[in-house]
Nucleic acid binder design. Structure first.
Lengths: 242, 242
DNA sequence: TTCTCCGCATTAAACTACGACATAGCTGGA
DNA sequence: TCCAGCTATGTCGTAGTTTAATGCGGAGAA
């Protein structure tokens, strides 16, 4: 898996920014070990304790939250370079669950050490805090910002976004990429029913905008796809200066 | 307006926490003046520059964002104690607009001074950053967290939440409170059409859960109202420790 | 190998919530 | 008195949900 992030990347918002070498080095300082996770296994559970935080070195997963009525809200995908467990609360309690959808390798940090950041590197501390606050954000949220769209545009937007993300991580191969998520995952992320998601994906497929099959995503023409989703990203991810 | 916050309150997340006296004193240091705003007047505009930030001392307003298609997304209410303009970006550019819906009194701070926080008071800096990141959040966002519900539960939840907020600020009077927002504002906040919002409010009124009329909100039985909205707040607002 | 089970994708039919449009009443201000 | 802004209510079309049934490939057991 030809991922750029070697060991302990901080990926700033917007999530596509690569990490500078001294940032990598800086994070090395906090590293306490590595961890392997098998596909389908939970990494962190809502309400659980996390004295440590992780970054994904390889593999994919997703953040989600179980709702009272039994539905599941997917918050975001977990890709190599992402933090996991950063935003756990006062008692280190997680506010959502994280699960691997492929086998994953994780890099482990000691959470308490991170407080040093605030003393030694205020600007980086700002980045981290901001990242933590935003980690909780929903994929669908930014969509709300853009105004409610119908399922067609919603999914076009989501696929285009995922594609761009993977592209930035050099995880695409020509116009195809491997993407171990089920249609149910996508549906949960967008707040649509599985059935309707399926039908809408069929429409996208018929329009030859995005072919989602067999755990693979093929995007013949990304620009066209982005246009179909009116892909105007909100400045939500833009980095503020307080 | 019997608000607790005297001059320059930092209200931590969750937003109901009162400010300690030394925090008040601390913020006094940054204060550079006061400002009066008349009802309906804009305070900050999206894209505009803000060399300063404000806190609301009295009055109410709302944060919103204009969408490309002309609709308006209300982000959140501005109540006494809230920060305004905290999260403006790199060039001090606002990412959304803020408008007063009553006459307001604002306390003015110098933005650049705030960077000192990161050097002198790391923990408070954390609070501030967190607050800034969350200021952008949409009201409807937390709703998405609970899972999309129908308009009825959506509005029940929103009204209950507003009520609790005002209650904490001691801005309620028995089971009635003054609330200078239009139905259009509520609709924009919840992402519903004005017409449907109106009809749904009628249903809530018929059920004697919430009476919204003449700029006043009456809540005969808050517990019942909360239940109607399945009002289980997400821990979204809970303060994390990284 | 073949049978069976199970998770996932697919498609169809009935139902529902919401938006669009239309119309009317109510109030305060010029 | 008229007009503008807000509230209120009815009808109708449609996007999306729900339910249910079918198909299909992979894993495990005989």
């Amino acid at each position: 898996m030809g991922v750029k992030c070697r060991n302990c990347p901080i990926r700033k918002l917007p999530l596509f920014d690569p990490m500078t070498s001294d940032e990598v080095e800086f994070m090395e300082h906090f590293k306490v070990g590595e961890l392997s996770i098998s596909p389908g296994a939970p990494i962190l559970s809502e309400g659980g304790n996390t004295p440590q935080i992780y970054t994904a070195l390889s593999g994919m997963g997703l953040r989600y939250k179980l709702l009272e009525d039994g539905r599941r809200q997917v918050i975001s995908l977990v890709l190599p370079g992402d933090f996991i467990g950063l935003q756990a609360g006062v008692m280190n309690q997680m506010t959502h669950s994280v699960e691997a959808t492929t086998s994953m390798r994780l890099c482990v940090f000691d959470r308490s050490e991170l407080w040093n950041l605030f003393r030694t590197q205020p600007e980086r501390a700002f980045d981290l805090t901001w990242l933590a606050a935003n980690e909780e954000r929903f994929l669908g949220e930014a969509l709300a910002a853009l105004g409610q769209r119908d399922a067609y545009e919603l999914l076009a937007w989501a696929l285009a976004r995922i594609w761009r993300k993977l592209e930035a991580l050099q995880m695409t191969n020509g116009d195809t990429t491997s993407l171990p998520y089920r249609q149910q995952d996508l549906a949960d992320a967008m707040g649509l029913s599985l059935v309707h998601t399926n039908k809408t994906l069929a429409k996208l497929r018929a329009a030859r905008l995005a072919i989602w099959a067999d755990g693979k995503l093929t995007v013949p023409d990304i620009e066209e796809l982005e246009e179909a989703g009116l892909c105007r990203d909100t400045p939500l991810g833009s980095r503020p200066l307080i």
